[in-house]
Design a binder for these strands. Sequence first.
DNA 1: AAATATTTGTCCGTATGTATC
DNA 2: TGATACATACGGACAAATATT
Lengths: 230, 230
Amino acid sequence: MNKRTGEKLYAQVFRQIRSYIIQRNLQPGDLLPTEQALVKMLGVSRNVLREAIKSMEIMGMVSAQPGRGTVLKEFNLDFVFQNVVFAAIGDEDPTIADMLEIRKRLELSFMRKAYDTLLDEDIAHLRAIMQDIKAQWELRRLFHANDRAFHMTIFSRVGNRTLTSLMEAIWDVDANFKTEEKFKHLDDTIVKHENIVRALEVRNQEAFEAAMLAHFASGKYTRLDSFAEY
Amino acid sequence: MNKRTGEKLYAQVFRQIRSYIIQRNLQPGDLLPTEQALVKMLGVSRNVLREAIKSMEIMGMVSAQPGRGTVLKEFNLDFVFQNVVFAAIGDEDPTIADMLEIRKRLELSFMRKAYDTLLDEDIAHLRAIMQDIKAQWELRRLFHANDRAFHMTIFSRVGNRTLTSLMEAIWDVDANFKTEEKFKHLDDTIVKHENIVRALEVRNQEAFEAAMLAHFASGKYTRLDSFAEY
DNA sequence: AAATATTTGTCCGTATGTATC
DNA sequence: TGATACATACGGACAAATATT
């Protein structure tokens, strides 16, 4: 084990292989070096190497076949979610609150760029989503998907891929938990969304930003003390 | 390997252990059976068992300690966020710039809360890091570690674990890339850091926020058009 | 088509460091 | 202090699946 960091060998090897993939810019379908090559390259035993690679395989990052090798797969975090989260978590879990605060702050931080980049067709799309939300209001169904689509659409043109994946990840977690609380302030949320769309439709930036602020000011997790904190 | 399903042993074992945890209703802090016991229970070799358990450990589901055992850990999204960045990386590399922009915006968004929560000892620690940075300035060494420690310390008391986890993840990726570019504006960065520490030492919030703004305004990846975007 | 090489899958044994009693 | 239990890490061996010649 690494004396300095206390990090175990197989965890180090996991990170090293991940770095190797990133730095070499390996794409899905590409082959990783063989176990033997990696053993020599990293100077560890085959067991330790396999503990790292098999972790990747179980998570869905790679796929190994005897006689062929280990290929990089398209990676999404679904499996990790399902397993890290397999203990029932309640809404009161501080991690959930922390996560939502991150999303809100990011949205507020990027809202100006979002406004500048949104196209007419995006705004039309937002309007369509609003129709869906209203139509299914009484049904109390599918609200999460629409809410998610609404917010993701707003920032779809910002062009920051990390922002996109991060927001998707947070929505994923959100989808797995707060299922019942979703309908508490539902009508209020609809009004807030409506205000956002209207401001966009008339291309009023000030109104848009005010509507975004109002939307996020209502949440229970919001602790926005002043304007400078966005 | 299971002939019917084609599922490899270590993947089966992973599922079996997960089922064991769920069926026994194990809670965070509870001990899993020892490796030896699981080996007997599941009828597999030690290697296969470890490949499954180490997957769980790397994902953050369990934590193993020699002499003690393997304990079930609490719900924790650190690993998820560490790999959101990884999962987002595609064929082009502007992802790095996107990532850094996320970090900068988060720091600016949280800087007021950071200021409010920082203790005297933290500021003393920041001063110590600055001494280190200056001492190793001519050596052109260890800048990443110090820079990272500097920024992480500023936000260490904010109390948002997702923020910490996310920032660490971004620093991790950053460490893998820009190795030579680090020294371009190094002296300028040192001045900016110095201004931040001074503002904190005299407890001047306005100066602190101004120094943070100036720090992030210099980066090549910064596209901060106006104050409201923070 | 058959033999051979390559690569991953699985098992075993042994030594070491660490936590607990 | 010593003894025990446990995970960490290494190495060797053979089987199974695939690729290559």
